[in-house]
Write a protein that binds this DNA or RNA. Structure first.
Length: 195
DNA sequence: CAGTGGATGCTCT
DNA sequence: GAGCATCCACTGT
């Protein structure tokens, strides 16, 4: 199985683990797809929830790697992170977009939306499509309801600046699968490349 | 097409 | 009381 390989990967430096997560397939209760966009956050990073040490909602980020950190964003959305690096480091990878492959009908029902390109093309969107919420905060990733499988071939990666933050914006810690049309930017009808 | 603003809850000042 | 690791509807070109 890939569960052991996943935990090994997440136990390494978050700047290594984040780009290496692209191409992995993630399912939650059998619904999900291929990871195409992520961002790295860590404790020495003013944009990170873990900046300044373990307090309140961020304590899961300082726990062992291979667990889910779920928080509420802007009072409305849930965002899903994978905790990285050895226990106590406060590093995690934010999942920003998936290419939906499994359970499309379930995702369409949850999102009340047909277009596969829009189902998981943003951190709040993918949690809604996969049914991820506060109940998943702190859960281990190598057990139900999570299921991960490794990519079968190397995935080319672009590194860019992170989205939606106001501090440390210059760090190029957003990683996107080269050429994907399922990322949170470039996936909207208005921003799609012309045919 | 781009730009703006509202919804809504938790953390921190 | 402000500020968010956001999304969507609505406006004006």
């Amino acid at each position: 199985m890939s569960a052991g390989a996943l935990v090994d990967l997440l136990g390494s430096d978050v700047l290594e683990a984040a780009p290496a997560l692209l191409g992995w397939t993630m399912l939650v209760d059998g619904v999900g797809g291929v990871i195409v966009e992520v961002e790295a956050y860590r404790e020495d990073d003013p944009a990170s929830h873990s900046f300044g040490g373990p307090r309140g909602r961020n304590v899961v980020m300082f726990g062992p790697p291979g667990h889910a950190y779920v928080y509420r964003s802007y009072g409305i959305h849930w965002c899903l992170n994978l905790v990285c690096e050895p226990e106590g480091c406060g590093a995690a990878v934010l999942l920003r977009a998936l290419e939906p492959t499994t359970g499309l009908d379930e995702m369409r029902r949850r999102r009340d939306l047909q277009d596969a390109r829009m189902l998981c093309s943003g951190p709040g969107r993918l949690t809604q499509a996969l049914g991820v919420a506060k109940a998943h905060d702190g859960l281990a990733l190598d057990a139900a309801p999570f299921s991960f499988s490794a990519p079968t071939a190397a995935v080319p990666v672009d590194a860019t600046e992170r989205i939606g933050i106001t501090k440390a914006v210059e760090r190029p810690w957003r990683f996107v699968s080269t050429g994907t049309t399922f990322a949170s930017r470039g996936s909207r009808a208005s921003a799609r490349p012309r045919a």
